[in-house]
Design a protein around this nucleic acid. Structure first.
Length: 557
RNA sequence: CCUCCCGUAGUUCAAUGGAUAGAACAAGAACCUUCUAAGUUCUGGAUGUAGGUUCGAUUCCUACCGGGGGGACCA
C-alpha cells in the first residue's frame, strides 16, 4: 500500500530512532497525511515546519513519486500527500484483480488464534445477549482470518450446575410422560424451575447432585435428551447467523481439571477461607473470589483455569481471545491474575474483550422470570416486518432474503458501535431501514449487482486497459474512498479488535456510491466501461466488507 | 463504602493524541417519464463541570457531578 511506502521512505530519512507517527487518510486535506514532523521536531531541535520542509524535499527524490502528485505542508506541520489520478484509478483495477481476496493481508500468516464466544447454556434460552456475543465474536474471527492467521472458533457451554437442575425440575413439572422435549419447552421449564426454587430448594439441589453423579436413570434420560435438543437447537441458530464452531467445551469437562489445578496450587496461589478455597484478589488490588466452594465443588473461576489448559491442549494457540458481556469484566480481571500465577505462559497469550448489554425499550430482561427476548423471536419478528415491506417485489426466495435483511439490521446495530458499550436496540429504527442500517449497505450492494446484470459488456474487459480511459472527468469522491480503504480498515479493526472501523468505512463507501449513482449514468454512454469497473469494485468492497462482518449480501432485495 | 466502565447535536452512534468534532434519525426545503426513492441534495444543531500534561486533548492525568456494572461460595 502507498501508505506503507510513505512510512518506509520517511523512516529511511529519519532513521530507526524516530518517534512513532501516523500516516492516515483524513477527510478534506489531501489523500494521505502524516504528523511525523510534529512528532519528531523537538528531538531534532527544529520547529515542525522546518522538519516538514526538509522531509518534503527528501521525499521528492524518493520512490513515492510514482504515486504522489504533490506534497503540501499545512497547519502546524502536517504533510499532505496528493495522489496522482492514475494511482487512485489504478487501484480500481487492483480491486477487480484481487476480487474476493481484496482487503485481506498476510501479516499474521504464521499465527494461530483461538476465539471463544457465544457460550449459551444448554437447557436455557438463546437470547439476545448471546446474539451480541456471537455477532461480535464472529466478526472478529473473520477479521483475524483476513490478516492471515489460522482461527479456531470455540464455544463454551454450561451443561452442569443449578440452572440445569432447575430446568430439569421444571421439565418434570410441565411434561407428561409420553411427550418429547422441544427447544421451546426447555426455556419455559427453566423459568418454572427458577420460580419454584425458593419453595423446593432441597428437591432441586438433590437433582443437581444426581446430575453430577448420574445415579438416577430417569434424570439421566431427561438430561441427555434435553442437552441433545438444546445443542441441536443452537446449531439451527448458528446456521441462521452464519457461524460455526471448531471446538465445543463443556463445564462438565473443565470442572474436574479446574478443581485439580486449584488443589495443586493450594497454599501457593489459593487459600482456604471459611471452608472454601479462595484467590485473595485484594492483595493484587482486585477482589477476592471463591474458586472451590465449601462443598468442594469448582466454581466458574476454577473451571476457567481448566478450560485454559484444555484449550491449549486442543490447539497450540499463539493468542486466545474470550468474548463475553461486560458484566463479568471484574471477574475476568481476578481470573487472569490468578492464571498469571498458575499458568503464566497461558495468561500472557489470553485476552478478554467484552461488549455491552443489548437494551430494549421495554426494559430489562430476565431468563429467571421467562421475560426474555430470544434471538429467534427477534429475528422472526423483524423478518415478518421485512416480508411485509417487500411483499410486491419480484424476488426469488423472499423468505430467505427477508431473514437476511433482518439479521443485517441486528448485526449492523451491534457492529457499528465500538464494542463495550451498551446498545439501545430500537425496533422502530432498526426497521425503518433509512440512513445507516444494515439494509442501507445491502441495498447499495444490490444496486451494484443490478447494474452489472443489466450491462452488456463485462467490466473485466477494461481490466487490461489503462484506467486513463476515464481521464475525461475528475477523480470522484467515490474513487478516493475506494483507494486502499478496506485494507486499511481491516488492519485497524484487527489491531483494536473493533469491527466498527469496517462498518463505518462501508457506510462511507455506500454514501459515496449512492451520490455517484444519482449524479452519473452508468450505462449507455462513453464512460460506461470505466464506470462499470468502478461499480464492480464497489460491489467487491461491499461484499468483502460485509462478509467480514458476518452480514449476508442478497443479490436482490 | 470500595471498585471498574461510560457521559459528544433533541435522539442513537463515530472520531488509531492532530487540522474545520463525522454520520443517521427527528425538524425545515428540494429531487422519481432516466441503471431499484430501502436513495440523493441543501439548511440549522454537540464534546457534563473545574483544573493539569502537551506545539496540539472528545481522546491522557486529578477532582467533582451524573448514569450503569461488579464487590467470597451464580457467571
Amino acid at each position: 500500500m502507498i501508505k506503507e511506502t510513505i512510512r518506509k521512505e520517511i523512516m529511511k530519512i529519519l532513521g530507526a530512532d524516530a518517534r512513532d507517527f501516523v500516516v492516515e487518510k483524513p477527510i478534506g486535506f489531501g489523500d494521505y497525511a502524516t504528523n511525523v514532523a510534529m512528532m519528531n521536531a523537538r528531538d531534532r531541535g527544529q520547529n515542525p515546519k522546518e522538519l516538514a520542509e526538509f522531509l518534503v524535499s527528501e521525499l521528492g527524490r524518493s520512490e513515492i513519486n510514482f504515486a504522489v502528485e504533490k506534497m503540501e505542508i499545512a497547519g502546524p506541520g502536517f504533510i499532505n500527500f496528493y495522489l496522482k489520478d492514475e494511482t487512485v484509478r489504478g487501484h480500481i483495477g487492483e480491486i477487480l484483480e484481487k476480487g474476493t481476496e481484496y482487503g485481506k493481508n498476510s501479516s499474521e500468516a504464521e499465527k494461530k488464534v483461538i476465539i471463544e464466544y457465544t457460550d449459551p447454556n444448554p437447557f436455557k434460552e438463546f437470547h439476545v445477549g448471546h446474539l451480541m456475543t456471537n455477532t461480535l465474536g464472529e466478526a472478529i474471527s473473520r477479521i483475524i482470518s483476513a490478516s492471515g492467521a489460522e482461527v479456531k472458533r470455540a464455544c463454551y457451554q454450561g451443561d452442569v450446575g443449578m440452572h440445569v437442575a432447575k430446568a430439569i425440575y421444571g421439565l418434570r413439572m410441565t411434561m407428561t410422560d409420553n411427550t418429547t422435549i422441544t427447544a421451546a419447552d426447555l426455556g419455559k421449564a427453566y423459568s418454572v424451575g427458577a420460580q419454584a426454587y425458593d419453595e423446593h430448594k432441597t428437591e432441586i439441589q438433590e437433582i443437581n447432585k444426581k446430575i453430577y453423579d448420574r445415579s438416577d436413570p430417569e434424570i439421566n434420560k431427561i438430561y441427555d435428551e434435553g442437552k441433545k435438543i438444546s445443542l441441536e437447537y443452537f446449531e439451527h441458530i448458528y446456521k441462521k447467523l452464519g457461524t460455526h464452531f471448531d471446538y465445543y467445551f463443556f463445564e462438565s469437562e473443565t470442572g474436574v481439571l479446574g478443581k485439580q489445578i486449584v488443589e495443586e496450587n493450594l497454599g501457593k496461589v489459593f487459600q482456604k477461607s471459611d471452608g472454601a478455597v479462595i484467590f485473595p484478589g485484594e492483595e493484587h488490588g482486585l477482589h477476592t473470589r471463591v474458586f472451590l466452594n465449601s462443598e468442594g465443588l469448582p466454581t466458574y473461576e476454577a473451571k476457567e483455569l481448566g478450560l485454559a489448559k484444555i484449550k491449549n491442549e486442543a490447539y497450540q494457540y499463539d493468542e486466545s481471545i474470550i468474548v463475553t458481556a461486560n458484566e463479568v469484566n471484574d471477574y475476568f480481571q481476578v481470573l487472569l491474575r490468578a492464571m498469571s500465577l498458575v499458568f503464566p505462559d497461558l495468561e500472557k497469550r489470553t485476552k478478554h474483550i467484552s461488549h455491552g448489554m443489548l437494551r430494549l425499550p421495554t426494559g430489562k430482561m430476565s431468563s429467571r422470570t421467562g421475560d426474555v427476548i430470544t434471538a429467534e423471536s427477534l429475528i422472526s419478528a423483524l423478518s415478518a416486518m421485512v416480508m411485509n415491506k417487500i411483499a410486491d417485489r419480484e424476488i426469488e426466495h423472499k423468505g430467505k432474503v427477508a431473514e437476511e435483511i433482518a439479521i443485517a439490521g441486528i448485526k449492523y446495530s451491534i457492529l457499528k458501535q465500538s464494542p463495550g458499550k451498551d446498545i439501545i436496540f430500537d425496533f422502530e429504527k432498526a426497521l425503518s431501514f433509512e440512513g445507516d442500517s444494515g439494509a442501507y449497505l445491502q441495498y447499495a450492494y444490490v444496486r451494484t449487482q443490478s447494474i452489472l446484470r443489466k450491462a452488456e459488456i463485462s467490466p473485466r474487459a477494461v481490466l487490461g486497459e489503462s484506467p486513463r480511459t476515464a481521464l475525461g472527468e475528475p477523480v470522484s469522491a467515490l474513487e478516493k474512498a475506494l483507494f486502499e480503504g478496506l485494507p486499511n480498515a481491516v488492519v485497524l479493526a484487527r489491531k483494536e479488535l473493533s469491527p466498527n472501523y469496517i462498518t463505518t468505512y462501508l457506510t462511507e463507501v455506500c454514501r459515496e456510491f449512492n451520490a455517484y449513482y444519482e449524479q452519473n449514468q452508468i450505462l449507455g454512454n462513453e464512460h460506461t466501461e470505466y464506470r462499470l469497473a468502478l461499480v464492480e469494485a464497489v460491489g467487491i468492497v461491499l461484499k468483502n466488507g460485509l462478509t467480514l462482518l458476518g452480514i449476508p449480501t442478497p443479490e436482490k432485495m
